[in-house]
Computed example of a mutant assay.
Amino acid sequence: MSSLSEFQLLSVLAQEMNMRKASERLFVSQPALSQRLQTIEKEWGTKLFIRSQKGLALTPAGEHVIQFVNDVLNKQEKVRETIHALQDGVSGTLKIAVASIVGQNWLPQVLKKFIDTYPQAKISLVTGWSSEILKCLYDDQVHIGIIRGTPDWKGLKIHLFSDQLLLVDREITRPEQVLETERPFIQFKSDSNYYQEIQDWWMRNFKTYPKKTIVVDQIETCKQMTFNGIGYSILPAITLNHTEKNLFKIPLVDENGEPLKRDTWLLGYESAFQLKQVSAFVELIKEYISEFHS
């Protein structure tokens, strides 16, 4: 039977499907990795991976072995968490999945404070769209998730903050000027309701489509194109700070004259919140938000 270190090797190979990338992650040479894989396959009595110039592919037997390997590694991690929870102090790995916009613009300051406060704790961070964050939670891959929008979540959820949506441009000073400009409306299209919310606001106010549009799939691309004067965009306030020069930022309002905002939520299962590293992180976030808004 393979050891846990060999299970880790197989898991990394299955994630990367590439000998070079896997060897870099495992800090071993490619020949050494290839030799170890051959030994492991001999132990299992079958080929687990098919090698080709394009990389690796799992054999049917390999798929079963990898599923078993990942189950064992997940159980090992849960046992470690239980042991850490029995010990004094905050340690263990905090596994977080975060919406990319939050991971880029808000979370770093919080993580810095967490690391400084709890140096024995480790952090595993995944970023992506909010739907991907929810999948990570449902699949029990992370302890907590931080998403944008209104969550359909049956577990514990904590509202972190709301930030306004702003029309941002180098030239436009009033929303109605978008009907006059020949420059494009740069839009960020995600899998959340954010894109639809912008579309609804636009049609409610202007009853017609923009003259020109550029659609991108990364909000940072949208932001940089706007900052460089290529066009105008609608951005959440979380992506902006007070260092941008020569930019007009016009708050959007709904049909009742109320500011249009995006919510950010922290989600998780109750069992995860009982872990020391998770509860410590949640309390630190609450303190950070309290200080930020005080």
Rank of each mutant, 00 (worst) to 15 (best):
A14F: 01
M17E: 11
M17T: 03
K21T: 06
K21F: 07
R25A: 02
L26P: 00
F27I: 11
A32I: 13
L33H: 01
I40M: 07
W44F: 15
I50C: 04
R51S: 02
S52F: 05
G55S: 06
A57M: 15
A61M: 08
V69M: 11
D71R: 07
D71E: 15
L73H: 12
K78P: 10
L86K: 05
G92W: 03
G92C: 01
L94C: 01
V98S: 02
A99M: 05
I101P: 00
G103E: 02
N105Q: 10
F114L: 06
T117K: 07
Q120K: 13
I123C: 08
E132V: 14
I133P: 00
I133N: 00
C136W: 09
I144C: 01
I144S: 00
R148C: 07
R148L: 07
D152Y: 09
K154F: 15
K157W: 08
F161R: 09
F161Q: 08
V168S: 08
D169S: 08
V178S: 05
T181C: 10
P184I: 04
Q187Y: 13
Q187R: 14
Y194P: 00
Y195C: 03
W202V: 01
F206W: 07
F206Y: 06
K211E: 10
K212A: 15
T213D: 04
V216Y: 02
D217Y: 15
I219W: 05
K223G: 06
Q224M: 13
Q224P: 06
F227Q: 12
I234E: 02
I234C: 09
L235Y: 05
T239R: 12
E244K: 13
N246D: 14
I250T: 02
V253R: 05
D254G: 08
D254T: 10
N256D: 06
L260D: 10
K261V: 08
W265H: 06
L266K: 03
A272Q: 04
Q277H: 11
V278R: 03
V278N: 03
E283V: 10
E283P: 11
L284N: 03
K286H: 09
E287T: 12
S290C: 11
S294N: 13
